[in-house]
Design a binder for these strands. Structure first.
Length: 283
DNA sequence: ACCAGCTCCTGCTTGC
DNA sequence: TGCAAGCAGGAGCTGG
C-alpha cells in the first residue's frame, strides 16, 4: 500500500485540484470501505470549501471550511485520481466509471477527484478539525519521521527493552509514523542493521544513525514520486519511480549493491510479512 | 505490556 | 489453457 512517501506525493498532486475549491457534489457509490462511511457524508461534504490539504502518517487530511476534516486512508490499493475539468459538460455526463471507483468528488470548476480502491482496505471519516489529533485513528500514532519530534532520543527510548525484531518495531506506527514494509526494509539496509535484530539490543550509536537514514530514505522516495509496484499511482495517474532505486525490496537473489559486499539479497518472513535484506552486510 | 497471528477484500502471479 | 493456491505496500483486534 501507499506508505508515507506515496501519500505525500498524492497530497501534493491533489492540491491544485482541491485547495480553495468547493465540493459541488460528493458521489458515494457504496456504504463503506473498511468501515461504514460517517453518517450523511455526502451532505457534510457538498458545498464545503477545501481550505487545507494535510497529511498525518499515511492519512490524508482534507480540511473543510465548515470545521470538519475528511480523513482518508488509501489502505493497500487505494488511489486518488484527478481528472481536469472537461472542455464540454457533455464529456462529464458520459465519463465512464471504472470498476472500484467508490467515491467521486465533483469539484467547483468541473474537475473531479476519484477514490478507487479494489481491495477496500481504505477508509474515510469526518472529524472536527479542532480535535483532529484525538480521532481514534490518529490518537495513538507516533511522531512524524520528517518532523522535529522524531529524533535520536525518541527512537532509543522507544526501542528500549523491546525484544521484537527491529523490522517489526519500525512497522509499529506508535513508534514512528508512516513507515511500511518497503521503506523499513530499505532503511534497515542503508543503516546496515539486520531486520532480525531485537530492537532493544541495538547499540545506541546505531539507533542514532538510523534516524537520519529513515529521513533520507523517505525524502528520496518523495522526490521520486513514491514507489509504483502494482496499484500505486500519483494523483495525475503517473507512476512513481523510486522502485528503481530499491536496494533490497523485491530483489531476492540479486547481488547486494553495497560497495565491497558480495552478499545476495534474501527474503525472509517476519510476522507474516516479507522482509528483504542482505545477510552479509546487515548485522 | 508486549508480541505473533489472524482478518478484512480483490486481483495478479505462480505452479501444477 | 485452466484452475487453485499464494501473495501483496495496512493495521485493528484477539489471545497467549
Amino acid at each position: 500500500m501507499p506508505e508515507l512517501p506515496e501519500v505525500e506525493t498524492v497530497r501534493r498532486g491533489l492540491e491544485p485540484a482541491m485547495i480553495g475549491r468547493r465540493v459541488e457534489r460528493a458521489e458515494i457509490r457504496r456504504p463503506d470501505l473498511r468501515w461504514p462511511f460517517p453518517p450523511r457524508m455526502a451532505e457534510r461534504l457538498e458545498g464545503a470549501r477545501i481550505t487545507h490539504l494535510g497529511r498525518r502518517s499515511k492519512y490524508l487530511l482534507i480540511a473543510l471550511d465548515r470545521g470538519e476534516t475528511l480523513i482518508v486512508h488509501l489502505g493497500m490499493s487505494g488511489r486518488m485520481q484527478v481528472d481536469a475539468a472537461p472542455t464540454a459538460t457533455f464529456h462529464a455526463a458520459i465519463a465512464p466509471t471504472a470498476k472500484h471507483d467508490h467515491v467521486v468528488f465533483h469539484m467547483e470548476g468541473g474537475g473531479r477527484v476519484t477514490f478507487n480502491d479494489p481491495r477496500r482496505f481504505g477508509a474515510m471519516d469526518l472529524a472536527p478539525t479542532h480535535a483532529l489529533e484525538d480521532h481514534w485513528l490518529l490518537a495513538r500514532i507516533g511522531p512524524e519521521p520528517l518532523g522535529n519530534a522524531f529524533d535520536e532520543e525518541h527512537l532509543i527510548a522507544a526501542f528500549r527493552g523491546r525484544r521484537t525484531p527491529v523490522k517489526s518495531a519500525l512497522l509499529d506506527q506508535r513508534i514512528v509514523a508512516g513507515l511500511g514494509n518497503i521503506y523499513v526494509c530499505e532503511a534497515l539496509f542503508r543503516a546496515g542493521i539486520s531486520p532480525r535484530r531485537q530492537a532493544g539490543r541495538i547499540a545506541a550509536p546505531r539507533v542514532r544513525a538510523l534516524v537520519p537514514v529513515i529521513r533520507a530514505t523517505l525524502l528520496d522516495a518523495i522526490e521520486a514520486g513514491g514507489s509504483s509496484l502494482r496499484d500505486y499511482r500519483q494523483a495525475d495517474g503517473a507512476m512513481g519511480y523510486f522502485q528503481h532505486a530499491f536496494h533490497v525490496y523485491d530483489r531476492e537473489g540479486h547481488p547486494c549493491t553495497r560497495d565491497g559486499c558480495s552478499g545476495t539479497i534474501r527474503r525472509i518472513v517476519q510476522s507474516g510479512r516479507s522482509t528483504f535484506h542482505c545477510p552479509a552486510c546487515q548485522r
